[in-house]
Amino acid sequence: MIINQKVSDLIELNFTGVVIVSEEPQNEFIQIQSEKWLDVAKYIKTDSELKFDSCQCITGVDLGEDKDFEVRYNFHSMKLKHKIEIRIAIERKKPSVSSIEQVWRGADWLEREVYDMYGIRFKGHRDLRRMLLPEDWKGWPLRKDYKTPNIYNGMKVPKVRKGWD
């Protein structure tokens, strides 16, 4: 809680209006607007009291059929040994958010994987293409409204043999 409050205050000090205050009393994350995300990211890496030099995990989340997407980042500091979580909400129609690949090199592959599974575009990423699925795959598999295709390049995809259940 203490590091969370401190980080939240420092971000609010330098970039006003970015942190969204939530009504829940006990939260271990910071919710941010998506407009100034690249500047906030550079700030938390270089500021001497924060020094988050390692991007651990980037998760894409689909909260439900008629709700928004979310991208959640987990950061960790090797020097000062503390960690935080930052969440950004994205609209469903044309999902996109700024890329932080130039700030932390490890975010490159993690963002490509989120793009592959959800279709969220990362603005400013130098090489955004599919990572785990083949290049000509159609659809974004981890969305809640995804339907498995019936055939791919001549091979049947779903289970077709009788008597297996």
Binding site: L133, P141, Y146, T148, P149, M155, K156, V157, P158, K159, V160, R161, W164
Partner: peptide, 18 residues
């Protein structure tokens, strides 16, 4: 036959004898 991934595996070939 696809193994434990045969139900919801969208990227798994269900059996190499296909």
């Amino acid at each position: 036959s696809g193994g434990p991934y045969s139900r919801q595996g969208y990227h798994v070939l269900k059996g190499v004898d296909q």
